[in-house]
């Protein structure tokens, strides 16, 4: 049987490499009974469309995004609470534990099965003319965000002027001076050459994003136990590789971007953390238990 594994990354991206690895591992584990057809570069649609496809049984598995997933399971958006995880390994530990299991259960109510969590990196702010090392620097900054409520909340708490804009319109909008800057993981910034327009990169690391690997529930339930195990195992193994690449990615990208004219600065994370505390209060009203559990798990 053919399994379609779809994702939105292009060649060279850690997600692309990991998807190829997943195909290899899964196929080998099922003794070649199942072949995997990897569809990269959003050829099966964008993240939201891939999730619809997986739920509707059009594709089987997708390495997706936190933003798109949170349109179905809003709780997944909480992983992006500001400065929640002190580093990537902490985030991984939380996702591979009880929190991950809880999110999976919620996803299954909506026709999706979470096979595991890969990485999408930590987001940083780029500015056209200055660093934003202190929260005060970011006040009034016109910053483009994805259409994601959590990100908008974070920058509103900081006193900036966030406005959501389609990714495809971002480079033109930055060039036109409508925005002072934007925020993204370094991989995205580098691949879209955004550092050429906004060369001042401040390593705020304000928000973590995962790459949930998701299967259609009806497909999943039709699998025998051994094949289910293969899918979980393949996700885990390919995930190790992907997380490793993701961790190294930031370290190797920085000198590359510097060579192309980007300038880097660190941010005063403690001050930022305090300035964004109100975001926690807002979400704690909606999801008191989960926010508490996340904070606790992240602190361990």
């Amino acid at each position: 049987e053919e399994v379609i594994f779809a994702h939105g990354a292009n060649a060279g991206n850690p997600r692309f490499v990991a998807a190829e690895k997943w195909a290899e591992l899964f196929s080998a584990c099922t003794d070649g009974k199942d072949t995997v057809n990897v569809a990269p570069s959003a050829t099966m649609g964008n993240d939201v469309e891939m999730l619809t496809s997986a739920t509707g049984g059009v594709i089987q598995v997708t390495a997706n995004s936190q933003g798109a997933m949170s349109q179905i399971v809003p709780e997944i958006g909480l992983l992006g609470l500001p400065f929640l995880f002190k580093d990537l390994p902490t985030a991984w530990k939380v996702l591979d534990g009880d929190v991950g299991a809880m999110l999976d259960k919620r996803a299954q109510d909506s026709g999706l099965k979470i096979l595991g969590f890969w990485d999408n990196g930590i987001r940083n702010v780029t500015h056209v003319s200055k660093f934003v090392s202190e929260p005060a620097d970011i006040k009034g900054m016109k910053i483009r965000t994805p259409p994601d409520q959590m990100t908008v909340d974070i920058f509103e708490a900081l006193g900036a002027a966030p406005a959501p804009l389609a990714w495809s319109e971002l480079p033109t909008a930055l060039q036109s001076g409508v925005f002072d800057g934007q925020e993204n993981p370094l991989t995205n910034i580098y691949s879209a050459k955004l550092h050429e327009i906004t060369p001042y990169v401040t390593m705020t690391g304000h928000k973590y994003e995962s790459t949930p690997v998701v299967a259609g529930l009806s497909w999943w339930q039709g699998l025998d136990e051994k094949t289910q195990g293969c899918a979980i195992e393949a996700t885990k193994e390919a995930g190790k590789l992907q997380r490793q690449m993701s961790l190294e990615g930031d370290e190797t990208l920085r000198p590359k971007m510097e060579a192309e004219g980007a300038k880097f600065a660190e941010a005063d994370k403690k001050a930022y953390q305090e300035a964004t505390a109100s975001v926690y209060e807002k979400y704690a009203k909606q999801y008191p238990d989960l926010v508490e559990a996340l904070k606790k798990a992240a602190a361990e």
Binding site: S53, T55, G56, V58, Q71, I72, P74, G111
Partner: peptide, 12 residues
Amino acid sequence: PILKASRFQTLS
């Protein structure tokens, strides 16, 4: 199936 799936998704 697609119509059913689309009931789960909310525009952000």
